[in-house]
Design a protein around this nucleic acid. Structure first.
Lengths: 142, 142
DNA sequence: ATGTTTGCAAATAGTTTGCATCCAG
DNA sequence: CTGGATGCAAACTATTTGCAAACAT
């Protein structure tokens, strides 16, 4: 944890970000939780001991953290829901710049085994490999 | 396409859903697009030839389709953003009932190769296996 | 000192809900 | 006929933006 915080300050400095009490608190709270919290959850926890941080700051800070690679956005992203009618087993590539999602097929991926400890604990309904990166048109246009 | 539409009607009937022009149009539009459209995109396309369908109907219909397994929600889900500070390579299990996301580690998954045709076309930045299903506590509580 | 960061308030975007009307079965 | 489906409007939730004040460097 100490280790993590030192690294945190280094990474901020590398990216020219100031170390503010809010940023430190938000990052610490994120490390403490293993539940992949949302901005609102983080905000509620911080308010208890630091009552005047605003939700906007939490939102902005988390997005800044994501931009410098300190954290990752894992679920939802506030963007609208998107729907996939393709019933064949398939996998996704998603462009982080334009949001495009491309289906692809791969037998090796389809054949992946579910780890035994997960199969015992959870009822697994679907399995999918998600790749992220920059798509061809975004690469060419900038 | 004809085939798909017949199957569509069968699946609706199996689940006791009425076949309405709106539902048919929404499903057809979804099949036509390979871009994993959002409710708003579908609504805009349908409006051109069927001006009085409401966005709410599109939203409700798509969610109904997802509930009966006809389509899948692939990105965002309108839920708040969630953040992951874990820098180690890892994978996710997500409970479709309570939304909990659990990290897990797996060397076989980490070692997966990116298919050559994708590596050529796109710049791949991250790779992750996403499992979905019902978690232990949700399984026990209902 | 100064330019970034913050907090507040207002605006925006997506989704959901209540309810009266409509229509598929 | 009748209950499920739809359209409209309003409510709600999450996020973003503009701006002045505060603060880290």
């Amino acid at each position: 944890m100490e280790q993590d915080l030192r690294t945190f300050e280094e990474i901020c400095r590398e990216h020219g970000l100031k170390i503010t009490p809010q940023r430190t608190a938000i990052y610490q709270e994120l490390l403490k939780s293993n539940a992949h919290p949302s901005a609102i959850m983080i905000h509620q926890r911080i308010k208890k001991y630091y009552p005047n941080v605003s939700l906007d700051t939490v939102n902005r800070t988390l997005i800044t953290f994501a931009e410098i690679g300190l954290v990752r956005i894992v679920e939802g992203r506030g963007d609208p829901k998107r729907f996939d009618p393709n019933p064949r087993p398939h996998h996704h590539f998603r462009c982080i710049r334009c949001g495009k999602i491309v289906d692809f097929y791969n037998e090796e991926y389809d054949a992946l085994e579910i780890p035994a400890e997960l199969k015992e604990k959870f009822l697994i309904i679907s399995k999918r490999v998600n790749l992220e990166g920059i798509c061809d048109s975004c690469r060419n246009s900038r």
